[in-house]
């Protein structure tokens, strides 16, 4: 089944013009699945939302591969789709908040159990430490203003300043300024671990 889908999507996901043969869906997932998930999780602080948005992102990549013109790299294109989906999620969440359909909660708190590693060496202490680190990291990210949070979430997936600027549609200087501020706050919040 997987092979059929990957073969079907193979021709549909192009690489950048002149970069040679197009990667297939399996390769794209191997390369970007963890990074997109990590990016969305750091932005939303919600593991279920990160699951859904990551899945939607790769479905969109597969469906709209024909629209990819190769003006940007495949990486920045995928992250831009993920960013747009995440922003839509925030708009939807805000709308639900206005309509009082759900109680406002710290988005980082809801996901704590889900954020535990699958098997933290089988030790409860390691699980507790991992959960505490995850809570601190997510709380530090949540405390950032939205633009700094987006820049930090992209930079922590090891996108360069240039790639981050391309994804966010910002000038590189603006990205550097946001990252400078965000890094200062993150280092201060996480100094115990650095």
């Amino acid at each position: 089944m997987e092979n059929i889908i990957i073969d079907a999507a193979k021709a549909a996901i192009p690489g950048k013009a002149g970069e040679g043969p197009a990667p297939d869906l399996g390769d794209v997932l191997d390369e970007y699945q963890r990074r997109v998930y990590g990016f969305v999780l750091r932005l939303t602080g919600d593991a279920a939302a990160a699951d859904d948005i990551t899945q939607e992102t790769f479905i969109a990549v597969w469906r709209h591969a024909g629209c990819f013109r190769g003006d940007s790299s495949l990486k920045t294109w995928i992250f831009r789709i993920a960013l747009n989906r995440t922003r839509s999620y925030w708009r939807w969440k805000k709308l639900r908040g206005w309509l009082s359909l759900e109680s406002p909660a710290d988005p980082g708190e809801a996901a704590l159990l889900e954020l535990l590693p699958d098997d933290p060496a089988g030790r409860p202490e390691a699980a507790a430490e991992a959960a505490e680190l995850e809570r601190r990291v997510q709380a530090a990210i949540n405390a950032l203003p939205p633009r700094q949070r987006e820049v930090a979430a992209l930079r922590t997936q090891e996108l360069s300043v240039q790639e981050t600027a391309a994804v966010l549609g910002m000038a590189e200087g603006t990205v550097k300024a946001h990252w400078f501020e965000a890094r200062k706050k993150l280092e201060s919040a996480l100094k115990d671990y650095l």
Binding site: R42, P117, A130, L190
Partner: peptide, 29 residues
Amino acid sequence: LFSLMAVRRGEAFWAGRRAAIISAVAEKG
């Protein structure tokens, strides 16, 4: 900082999510 902020999950988690995405793409197709 990047290392500290990385999302740590087991291989089984990533394999499960990968299979879910492949399956969702198949359904859409």
